[in-house]
Design a protein around this nucleic acid. Structure first.
Length: 330
DNA sequence: CAATGTTTACCAATTA
DNA sequence: TAATTGGTAAACATTG
């Protein structure tokens, strides 16, 4: 990913697509995510060409942000009031541009391509391109990042992301050892410039020692958390937004969840995508095939009451999640 | 109300 | 030549 300086191209149109410009802006930020206004600012700052006709290109840019799966939207924390969300790059989109050409990508990135069996779903549900497409020399920063990410996320050729801890549902608990960018370890690790854990809207402060990072385990509709009430449900399907167990469906939206680990105002943030992904493209239920990044957290589950939404035809799931969700940090 | 976000449609250029 | 990708316009919804 190029890092053009100020006025790199004078008043000429720079040889970058909006996607690469946006990616550049995001990459240039310390936390690898920016609000829309800062993306505008970055582009206008470096490319005088874009100081004119702002309405036109900004509309195009917004279109790109929404339209392209390579960008994910990250809600603001309540202590970061402001308009609009933050935008970040999808963890798996680092290898979009080929041979230094930032005008046209080799292939449009799709987080959930429809019926492409050759693609691999990583443990966190993020789509991975077949390795044969990954060996072309990509460029600079994005590539490095992607490599780093892929090396921990792509199953098969790389060390897979360990499944989330989930006692009752048959997923063996494993120590969290990977450096997945969405990994709690990464987020709270001092060397990792992280993003912040995003409190679930309307949530009461978490109990001391309990992170309360959301995981939903159900095969039907809404689930309820006895203490934290953390589970968000998809607005359309009513299904949980993050899934740990052998579920039948996962949600369309990824919604930011969790409660601050620290009470300080500088709490880092987890970039949790909330971009919808097509339900139709979802693989059959499997523990390791949750849609969206599943943050490896330690979860204890016990029999109890997860209930579908009233009026739902889905059967109730006789599961309760224990009130404590502890993040395994090391 | 303005900024932000989503979606659809159309077209041109490029690629397979 | 069909499919894909990128750019643009526009309508509309949402949000602070």
């Amino acid at each position: 990913m190029p890092r053009p300086g100020k006025d790199s191209y004078g008043n000429e149109k720079p040889p970058y697509s909006y996607i690469s410009l946006t990616a550049m802006a995001i990459q240039s930020s310390g936390e690898k995510m920016l609000p829309l206004s800062d993306i505008y600012k970055f582009i206008m700052d470096r490319f005088p060409f874009y100081r004119q006709n702002t309405q036109r290109w900004q509309n195009s840019l917004r279109h790109n942000l929404s339209f392209n799966d390579c960008f994910i939207k990250i809600p603001r924390r309540p202590d970061q009031p402001g308009k609009g969300s933050f935008w970040a790059l999808h963890p798996m989109c680092g290898d979009m541009f080929e041979n230094g050409s930032f005008l046209r990508r080799r292939k449009r990135f799709k987080s959930m391509p429809r019926q492409q069996k050759s693609h691999v779903v990583a443990a966190d549900g993020i789509q991975v391109k077949p390795m044969s497409h990954m060996d072309a020399p990509p460029s600079a920063l994005l590539h490095e990042q992607a490599k780093m990410r892929l090396s921990q996320m792509a199953p098969g050729t790389h060390a897979p992301l360990p499944p989330p801890h989930c006692g009752l549902l048959g997923v063996p608990a494993q120590p969290v050892t990977t450096k997945h960018p969405f990994n709690i370890e990464n987020i709270i690790a001092p060397e990792c410039k992280p993003a912040s854990i995003l409190p679930h809207p309307g949530l009461a402060p978490t109990l001391p020692g309990h992170c309360g990072y959301t995981v939903c385990v159900t095969s039907t509709g809404a689930c309820t958390w006895p203490v934290h009430g953390l589970c968000s449900t998809d607005s359309i399907t009513g299904l949980p937004s993050m899934v740990l167990g052998p579920v039948a469906h996962v949600s369309r939206d990824f919604i930011s969840q969790g409660v601050p680990l620290k009470t300080s105002g500088n709490a880092p943030a987890i970039p949790v995508p909330i971009k919808p992904s097509p339900l139709s493209a979802l693989p059959p239920p499997a523990v390791s095939q949750a849609s969206g990044p599943v943050v490896p957290v330690a979860v204890s589950l016990a029999p109890g009451s997860l209930t579908p939404p009233s009026g739902s035809s889905s059967p109730a799931v006789p599961i309760t999640v224990a009130p404590t969700l502890a993040i395994a940090t090391r």
